[in-house]
Write a protein that binds this DNA or RNA. Sequence first.
DNA 1: AATCACATGGAAAGCGCTTTCCGTAGAGGC
DNA 2: GCCTCTACGGAAAGCGCTTTCCATGTGATT
Lengths: 347, 347
Amino acid sequence: MRTMGAKRGAVTLEEVAREAGVSLATASRAINGSARTVRPEIRERVERAARALNYTANAQAQAVARGRTNLVGLVVQDIEDPYFSSIAAGAMRVAEANGLMVSIAGTGRRPDKEIEYAAALRGLRAAAIVIAGSRTDDRDALERLGAELDAFERSGGRVALIGQRRLPVDTVVVANRAGARDLATRLTGLGYRSFGVLAGPRNLLTATDRLAGFTEGMAGAGITLPPDMIVHGEFNRDGGHDAMLELLARRRDVECVFAVNDVMAVGALAALRSRGLDRRVAVAGFDDIATLRDIVPALTTVRLPLARIGAAALEMVLREPAEGPHRRLVVRGEVVLRESTPGVRRG
Amino acid sequence: MRTMGAKRGAVTLEEVAREAGVSLATASRAINGSARTVRPEIRERVERAARALNYTANAQAQAVARGRTNLVGLVVQDIEDPYFSSIAAGAMRVAEANGLMVSIAGTGRRPDKEIEYAAALRGLRAAAIVIAGSRTDDRDALERLGAELDAFERSGGRVALIGQRRLPVDTVVVANRAGARDLATRLTGLGYRSFGVLAGPRNLLTATDRLAGFTEGMAGAGITLPPDMIVHGEFNRDGGHDAMLELLARRRDVECVFAVNDVMAVGALAALRSRGLDRRVAVAGFDDIATLRDIVPALTTVRLPLARIGAAALEMVLREPAEGPHRRLVVRGEVVLRESTPGVRRG
DNA sequence: AATCACATGGAAAGCGCTTTCCGTAGAGGC
DNA sequence: GCCTCTACGGAAAGCGCTTTCCATGTGATT
């Protein structure tokens, strides 16, 4: 581990106190907020000295002395993914409103990294940890993460998860299953009968939940998804693209394709276009990524209020801990039908 | 300012030492890395005790004792903007490789916030600050930011800027002007003669540089941009959309539109589509945002290696400080011609 | 056997703050 | 004029670490 920077040399409170001709204690009380008050003229003198010396309190030292910090950790899979950057934006908004600093870490979808960062944040004595997207079904990793978060909570920190409902902590649950079910219902309502699913990784809960929900919704309309209409692949644009090509190779008769997220849907559209099949095969996604709202054809999807989800997680973590069981806030997406699924004109 | 969390209660090194039956000093040397070594069997005993108690060193206390941290601050305008999230991803990659934690703050394009966060990071005794996107021409704000960064550097921290070359610190300069000039040259080469520019905010340097470069490039082809072909507006999708409509209202004879970033270009395309003019008016953007590479028509743009830019800034900050003048790394974009500017077929 | 150099463990002094505890002075009550 | 109370400044004791400075034991050297 490489460390560096900030060698001794910053102005300390002691220098400020000396400059102002008061004691260290008084300077602390005057500047850095305290229950005790200081006579106005003295406070003024200290403030002037601080300004003159360009003093900024050492947050680390304050943290050590006070026993708490104003740092919250946000762990996401990939900050470059608009899904996560929107969540981060929402969380940062709330953090800023509460005077908290946010430390963001990206796991690159490796569950180990989540544990590692959780431990690092425990070391930093972060006030809270929010983890977005821990969703593998790796039993062992999940258990170790649970243990780490437990230790974090026992040492006084607060924890919230986004989209993961498998650990006993406060959670903003994204109703992936229900959303996908609703989507399937609407799509069958449009007359589609032959579906394919670009299903993402097998071990990613978000992906498997959406697949499961979609299957349920189809079942509600009396349709069964043939196994060869499900193609697994990566959870990103290229994954959608490649899975779409694979699906086309297997079956040319698919009417409507559900990609388990918008980014994959975009890849699928590109693949269809390359085969001259766009506008012939309907495509639906999930998330309603803002940046993607202008693509053509406009993408049918399930809208998730991502920034609100991030904000909600942070608010959850800021509230007093519940004394009972852990809270959960369920966020349900809303189906948005657009041009990419125009409906079936049979005849 | 609201603070919370991590009350006393975490396991301390002293408890570990007691458990292992050694002194505090020995425990510290055994666990937390030091120049001094400890006999293997004792180290083993301490490690076992630490594991048994689930000990994690208090990073704040270490920071105050050591006088340095492994925290770097990254200040961006808006993490939700793919431009910044890509930069952040690149920076985080390098940070992780060097065992550094990254704290990200979003300014929402308010220059004051930059100063505020820089001060906060000085308080945290961050090892380094990277600021992406400080680019207003607000003299006063710039000066105060300069003063704050100066104080930060004097107290031992390191600073790098991205895209801003107006302050005497290490900078990754994005050659906006040159890129836009190249783009104009290529577009005139395609036969376009009548141009419009969706120019973004008047006080945003990135935007004005791109406008200036584009104008220069056109001048190189003997074309002058009429003032009413320049429409200012917001630097986002809606800004591009509205500016495009405004431009169309002013002049219907525009052949090719340069939006000063990709997101605006997407808005412009949407506006053109709503008027049935897509494919009739050419559109070019800037940045080559990854998520937008599949839009139709594929967008001509200037590719910026955003993740590399973020990574480069962090690497700059990790290297030993230069003893001479401040470093600058110039990153020049590369024009990518795509379908959105098919060229002119004059009848 | 005496000397020296290390290697290694522990005591204690910081690091830059906050906060408790104490002392003093002035205000108010009688 | 004496007593109590309150307000407020300062000394000093932490907070959880690292690191300097000692003290001790060991093996090598003569």
